[in-house]
Design a protein around this nucleic acid. Structure first.
Length: 430
RNA sequence: UCCGGAGUAGCUCAAUGGUAGAGCGGGUGGCUGUUAACCACUAGGUUGGGGGUUCGAGUCCCUCCUCCGGAGCCA
């Protein structure tokens, strides 16, 4: 007996096949009952007719509870009345296990309840779709860099240095000393760029911020490219090419999932390079023009980002920021020493910052002064300073937040649904 | 940490200070094309914990706990 999946069921019309999976729902109308069956690749309606099966099989209607695991065999046929266009005329059903009291009904539930059952919730249609989009977003990132001459460089999770201060770092015991969980692979990425020219790292990062908003997690994933011989403008070229590629890829490969999520595709279709580029100063003007009382020199809040991004169909890149609110390693603008050559990309529709990056300071002595001025110890940065001693070049990079990107493309409000098991200030389980 | 909201059946929610209820889910029965099917019947409660006011508290007061949303902080 040929074992097939629901995703490929259309290729087997007229044939007898077997499928392994779980019971999603059962509907009975007497001498016929319908088993809505899922196998991780989709949903399939299976029809059990009293006159076509033995009485034991027909009697399973009352025994098959939601999420019971089964193997069904039968004949595939095209059927316009079935969701997906095909259904299975059941011959037999083999039971692996009868599930008891599955807590998630195909009805309304609150977020807290669902998050407590996250390990089961990911079986549900909508969560399933979001996580498949996440998979494709990650694949698109990897493909993009692999196709453009980047080398994957894995950076460490345990670190001794803080990239941007220590208040939001997770400290852990590390034998007879302490270490931090990384909040960015960037510094190591810069070392990689000097070795390979263009690199990217991809992995989890950690921020011990007590943020409780829909845009924050304590553990999130970033893809961070770093390029030697690259200035801010070229950095922005790469950023917009990457994001346009990801969006195009998802439109081409996640049609079913985006439909499940009822995503307005037309908004995503407009996302094509080049993206608008404005300076921080111009962004402040936009805020003021829209009635926001904003003081020059501050960082943008969530609402500010929404107001700015609402002016554009595409993601907008905001560059040349007040140096005081940006990290020590950012290169200053030669035309205005008070400005840092950083760039943030704001996604449309209020999804906020999805990219942060910029050109790095490449002069040894200036960097030493910046580290000192920032009140950071020099010792843990010796290796980083070495990069400016041995063949320093202009270089730049950025980090793309996977969860915010997935939330934007999926059109879901809260990023906690874009990662299989979200970590927030009050949630470490499941 | 601050501001706001919530906690009642497995879930989502009702209940003017006066007998704790509905829908869904569960169970039983009916129905040969259902789409979160439908119809009938049925079981299911320490109203988050503690204290107080009152003839009487799910409801009012105090306190603690938990969760949600937002702010700050940040990506």
């Amino acid at each position: 007996m040929k074992e097939v999946t629901i995703a490929e069921i259309g290729d087997y019309a007229g044939q007898e096949v077997a499928l392994n999976g779980w019971v999603y729902h059962v509907r009975s109308i007497g001498k016929i009952w319908f088993l809505i069956f899922r196998d991780g690749t989709g949903l399939l309606q299976c029809v059990v007719v009293k006159s076509e099966v033995d009485s034991d099989t027909f009697g399973l209607e009352t025994k098959l509870t939601q999420e019971s695991s089964v193997r069904v065999t039968g004949t595939v046929r095209a059927e316009p009345r079935a969701v997906g266009g095909h259904e299975l005329g059941v011959k037999s059903i083999q039971i692996f296990q009868i599930a008891k009291d599955y807590p998630i009904a195909p009805k309304e539930h609150g977020t807290a309840f669902l998050m407590d059952h996250r390990h089961l919730w990911i079986r549900s249609k909508k969560q399933h779709a979001i996580l498949r989009i996440r998979h494709q977003v990650i694949k698109a990132c990897r493909d993009f860099f692999d196709q453009n001459g980047f080398t994957l460089l894995d950076t460490p999770i345990f670190t001794a240095n803080a990239v941007e201060g220590t208040t939001n770092l997770f400290a852990v015991d590390y034998f007879d000393r302490s270490a931090y969980l990384t909040q960015s692979g960037q510094l190591y990425g810069e070392a990689g760029a000097m070795a390979f020219g263009k690199i990217y790292c991809f992995g989890p990062t950690f921020r011990a911020e007590k943020s409780k908003t829909r845009r924050h997690l304590t553990e999130f994933w970033m893809v961070e490219p770093e390029m030697a011989f690259c200035d801010l403008d070229q950095d922005m070229d790469w950023a917009e090419k990457l994001v346009a590629y990801i969006v195009r890829w998802c439109l081409d490969h996640c049609e079913t999932e985006l439909k499940t999520l009822e995503r307005d595709i037309s908004r995503l279709e407009k996302v094509k390079a080049p993206f608008p580029r404005i300076t921080y100063t111009e962004a402040v003007e936009i805020l003021r023009k829209n009635g926001v009382d904003f003081e020059f020199g501050n960082d943008f809040g969530g609402n500010d980002e929404t107001v700015i991004s609402e002016q554009f169909d595409c993601p907008v890149m905001v560059h040349r920021w007040p140096a005081e609110i940006k990290a020590f390693y950012m290169k200053r603008d030669v035309e205005n020493d008070k400005l840092a050559l950083g760039v943030d990309m704001l996604a449309p529709e209020g999804y906020g910052e999805i990219i942060g990056g910029g050109q790095r300071e490449d002069d040894h002595d200036i960097l030493v002064k910046r580290i000192t001025d920032a009140g950071l110890p020099l010792k843990p940065f010796q290796w980083y300073l070495d990069l400016r001693k041995y063949g320093s070049v202009p270089h730049a990079g950025f980090g793309l937040g996977i969860e915010r990107t997935v939330a934007w493309i999926s059109g879901i409000r809260h990023i906690r649904e874009t990662i299989p098991f979200p970590r927030t200030i009050y949630r470490l389980e499941p």
